[in-house]
Nucleic acid binder design. Structure first.
Length: 221
DNA sequence: CCTCGGATCAGCT
DNA sequence: GCTGATCCGAGGA
């Protein structure tokens, strides 16, 4: 089966993110060949405050402005995460995969996926559309139903549903949808806010949680 | 320069 | 569910 080339990535980011599900992502180097079947992605698009390229090119995000199919690798909290660039300033975060063959550990979560595949910060800027080290192959056979939901771990742009996952995969990084139509959000009385603003360091600041639900919804195939 | 939040994760309640 | 680790990049408090 032929690898994905430039044209595959040079399309609207949401579409690429969705179609990447089921693809085989292969890393080849001296240590050997490692690969996963992608089961979870997120799109980072133009005019998106959560996008690293939101304010234009910087040294860190410069590979987001290279050719479609470029690997954009960044580090957060000592953890490395990888994206595939689509159009300038847009990319798809690789969040989870199902292991194929020998993989060190569970590739569930963007940091864990990179660790399992041996992707390092030095791989930033590599060309996955043509290079020898990173290759993408279309899925064989059926892919299964897809779900869409809010992206993980963001403070900004939480409303957008740009996370894509294979509904039936046990390798996704976070909970799959609950039962249909289930509502756990109780209408909260307006006066019931916590009174005392406790002092929190920036690292302990509470993240706005989605009310306990994953927010992911099934969206068919 | 200095500040501060972060596309995470492991580990705990 | 919640917390802290731990340090870098981006922006200007």
């Amino acid at each position: 089966m032929r690898r994905r080339g430039r044209a595959f990535f040079d399309r609207p980011t949401e579409r690429v993110a969705r179609e990447l599900l089921g693809h085989r992502f292969v890393v080849r180097d001296r240590r050997g060949i490692r690969s996963v079947r992608l089961v979870e992605t997120e799109a980072y698009v133009a005019h998106d405050p959560a996008n690293h390229a939101y304010r234009g090119p910087t040294r860190r995000n410069r590979s987001m402005f290279l050719r479609p199919g470029t690997l954009y690798v960044y580090r957060i909290h000592q953890v490395v995460c990888a994206n595939l660039v689509t159009r300038p300033g847009e990319a798809v975060l690789l969040r989870a995969g199902a292991p194929l063959g020998e993989v060190r550990d569970r590739p569930s979560g963007p940091g864990r996926l990179c660790r399992a595949l041996g992707i390092r910060i030095e791989d930033d800027g590599a060309d996955a559309a043509r290079g020898r080290k990173f290759l993408l192959f279309p899925s064989r056979g059926r892919r299964g139903p897809i779900a869409v939901g809010p992206r993980v771990g963001l403070r900004r742009a939480r409303a957008r549903r740009l996370r894509y996952l294979l509904l039936e995969s046990p390798w996704v990084s976070r909970p799959r949808p609950r039962g249909r139509g289930r509502r756990l959000t109780s209408a909260s009385p307006s006066g019931s806010r916590a009174g005392a603003k406790s002092r929190r360091s920036r690292t302990t600041r509470r993240r706005p949680s989605g009310g306990g639900r994953s927010g992911v919804r099934s969206v068919g195939r």
